[in-house]
Design a protein around this nucleic acid. Structure first.
Lengths: 384, 384
DNA sequence: CGGGCCTCTTAAAACGATTCAATAGAATGT
DNA sequence: ACATTCTATTGAATCGTTTTAAGAGGCCCG
């Protein structure tokens, strides 16, 4: 297809010079190295390196030289060997991304945010999935340490109490950021949604729609998010002079399966219904819980939102597609991924330039997304 | 907490021997190297390497020696530097994982399958997300090449025609496997669901429920999956002597947004309804399309499955949670991830041992998952 | 004319592992 | 007693870069 390369002959003219033509490389994948570029261009490896990296010394290199070297590199299809580069420069340009459970739909947008920001900054993400298991978590961290990642991002909404391997990251001055949870102390940056504000947003919405008999499905104790969301609800109630009926408050059990809250929501709602205590709205811990609740309500012949409004939390992808579509509190997940990357990048740059920098604990603002599952309380149900 | 280490003194006794105590390492992250282990244990780096890797030569090493070295390594918290190791041994133990769009819910289980199999085999996944953009795809491949991944796995259900960067992988003998699509030629392994069988499965199910007026929403031309699914449908119809009513067949437009099929399903179903041509069942290209269709039907006052059955394809996470839950054809996504990893690992091992190995094109069996959205045709609607 | 200062280029020493060939001592066989 | 084979260990080369210090000219200035 393409015409034969002009200087094809000079390419392998002294191949095998290094080890007398031993049995290495079967002739196919002979990687072209910097020395090859040096040889072809007629300059030394040092010069090649300086030119190709546009190092400070490049200002002294004659333009003609640069051109020749760049051309040779291009012609040979030279690609620097990242490993060699890393070994010498101590920079791997990779970042560990640890998901505690990739199955959680909440992870996907975060992951996209992380990947995107890393890509922009020319870092490569090395992925690890802990499968909710502590030993996998630790083994994976170990692996990331061996690979000398320059930073670590951990995505989780719950986690093991003592992760002493994380201490190794601090010892080695590797910046760590967490998304969805916070580590006590000031060693680790974090990005979380403002759960308290989110809880408030949702209950306020229901309240303003006229609902006064609101059932609540609280999140499992294990999850970091549960407490602050509930706190936001309580604070709003207190401020509005609204008294929460404790008999309408239930709580999801602890569970490691991120999709279990659907079942949980379903069961708890059925239990609530059995109590025969009327409620005109239900606020669920998260979207899956809300979907489970809707399922239970529908099954019991209660129309959503006609007879009962339901609100969720998170705005995962399916919330917009469910029937009825779900009113929920959106977490800016992708943005949170970006922010975490920014935080660790700042850390990397700082220690590169021997600057000091400070750990950040960021809270992002949740946003109320009103869809079909909530509606102003109807007279017939309200006056029940 | 722990008692002072016995041999603490001998540890840094000759620190700085290498470069006369220059300004390097501020004292914090001093990485412990193999030489340190050698020094402390009293043996040479060579011996340490042999012992710690349990290399063939290790059979000649005295047990006492092994013990001392291992202990020293443990005490010092020695962690081999992966980059150095890679440089010498030419093995990075990493695999590139390229997603054409991570946002697609279909990717998540595949990703878990890939990650899991790689983890078992002690390979690290380097993640890349093409965002449906050709230039990102290529730049990411470039990056993976520089990092000398030992294999590449590409997840996509459509893709750009000419990816000449992939040729570089072949040139370098790096095994490539694709999930969800196939490359012509025998250079690349692939794993796909048997779409034809799946299409058949779904339509057969509807047929057996008594449906004879079935509407079809075909997939976009761009997607690899569309044609074979349709073929499976046609073949079944032909075999069963069932004639597809072409006026009930519509097709999704091409689109890059993986979530657009929900809207597509919604709109196309509305159009079908406007035609006022009766149908008792609808078979959608995938789950999101099906959900969109259900939405449109419900909106038009048509009950699902009471008045119209709907079947999807894929069994993404939300299918089980939607209302009504969706009858669909499940792709064994996680398994497909595993299979792709097996394929490339086989390639890696083969070229390691200078064996030949063959490209594989695997088709996994889809599985019909019957849920609430389909039902036997009712007399009232059938006799319309 | 010799020293100082540019400009352009390179030799050589890392980086931290792996691995081959070599060594030295002990045991064995003839 | 000497060659041979094991056992146990190591020196030194190597992987492909980056980077420092230095070298070779050329030019200017006093």
């Amino acid at each position: 297809m393409s015409p034969p390369l002009q200087s094809e002959p000079q390419l392998p003219d002294d191949a095998g010079h290094r080890d007398g033509g031993m049995k290495r490389d079967g002739g196919k994948g002979a990687a072209v190295t910097m020395r090859d570029v040096a040889k072809v261009s007629g300059f030394s490896p040092a010069t090649v390196s300086i030119v190709l990296n546009n190092a400070p010394l490049a200002q002294y290199i004659a333009p003609a030289t640069k051109k020749k070297i760049e051309e040779a590199a291009r012609k040979l299809g030279y690609r620097p060997n990242a490993m060699a580069r890393f070994l010498r420069s101590k920079r791997t340009h990779s970042v560990g991304v640890m998901l505690i459970d990739i199955t959680d739909p909440y992870c996907t947008p975060i992951l996209r945010g992380i990947e995107n920001s890393l890509y922009q900054a020319s870092y490569a993400p090395i992925l690890a999935d802990a499968h909710n298991q502590k030993n996998r978590f630790e083994r994976a961290l170990e692996m990331l340490l061996e690979r000398h990642v320059e930073a670590l991002i951990v995505v989780a909404n719950w986690t093991f109490v003592d992760i002493h391997v994380l201490a190794d990251f601090n010892k080695r001055n590797i910046p760590v950021a967490t998304i969805g949870w916070e580590l006590p102390g000031d060693t680790t940056s974090s990005v979380m949604v403002d759960n308290e504000a989110g809880g408030r947003l949702a209950v306020e919405h229901l309240y303003k729609l006229g609902h006064r008999k609101i059932a609540f499905i609280r999140g499992p104790k294990m999850l970091i998010d549960s407490a602050p969301r509930w706190k936001g609800i309580q604070k709003f109630a207190h401020g509005a002079g609204y008294e929460i009926d404790q008999s309408l408050v239930v709580q999801l059990p602890d569970s490691l399966d991120p999709n279990s809250s659907f079942d949980g929501g379903f069961r708890l709602t059925e239990e609530l219904l059995q109590k025969r205590k009327k409620f005109t709205a239900l606020m669920a811990f998260d979207d899956l819980t809300a979907l489970g609740a809707i399922r239970a309500l529908t099954k019991a012949g209660i129309e959503v939102p006609g007879q009962c409004s339901v609100a969720g939390f998170d705005d995962v992808a399916l919330s917009a597609m469910s029937a009825p579509s779900l009113t929920t509190v959106r977490q800016p997940l992708e943005t949170m991924g970006n922010l975490a990357v920014n935080a660790v990048l700042e850390g990397i740059n700082a220690s590169q330039e021997k600057r000091d920098w400070t750990i950040s604990h960021q809270k992002t603002s949740p946003e109320l997304v009103i869809r079909e599952s909530t509606r102003a309380v109807s007279l017939s149900t309200a006056d029940d």
